[in-house]
């Protein structure tokens, strides 16, 4: 069954190096819709990334920087990107060598179509 995010997620997962993408509730960390390659633990990524994004959001606001837009965590074995709008967070899991510049632009563009 298609959700309002299916098309967005289908486009994002096609990018080289992207292993999973999902729309997650910002406050509950639960997956709303996802497109994942086999082996990606979607619920763990969703819960932990939404929590990280929320934490960055709160810290940024408290530090006087305002609301957070794009967020990226780079790790030894890959990276996680997130961007939020309307209480939802678009999350991408990718390999270490992905072109994050393109991913960032696509994510910010995709957010504009969020209901």
């Amino acid at each position: 069954m298609n959700s309002p995010f299916t098309q967005t997620l289908s486009a994002l997962i096609r990018h080289r190096g992207v292993t999973g993408c999902m729309v997650v509730g910002e406050s509950d960390g639960i997956i709303v819709d996802s497109s994942l390659q086999i082996g990606v633990n979607g619920s763990a990524v969703a819960a932990l990334t939404a929590s990280l994004y929320r934490k960055a959001q709160r810290a940024s606001t408290a530090a006087g920087f305002g609301m957070t837009g794009f967020f990226e965590l780079v790790a030894e074995g890959g990276r996680v990107c997130a961007a939020g709008r309307n209480e939802m967070v678009l999350v991408i899991v990718a390999g270490a060598k992905v072109n994050v510049g393109i991913i960032r632009m696509e994510m910010l563009k995709a957010l504009e179509s969020f209901p």
Partner: peptide, 11 residues
């Protein structure tokens, strides 16, 4: 994903 190396965010 191993250890984290970097976090970047835009506000």
């Amino acid at each position: 994903l191993g250890k984290w190396k970097q976090i970047v965010f835009e506000s």
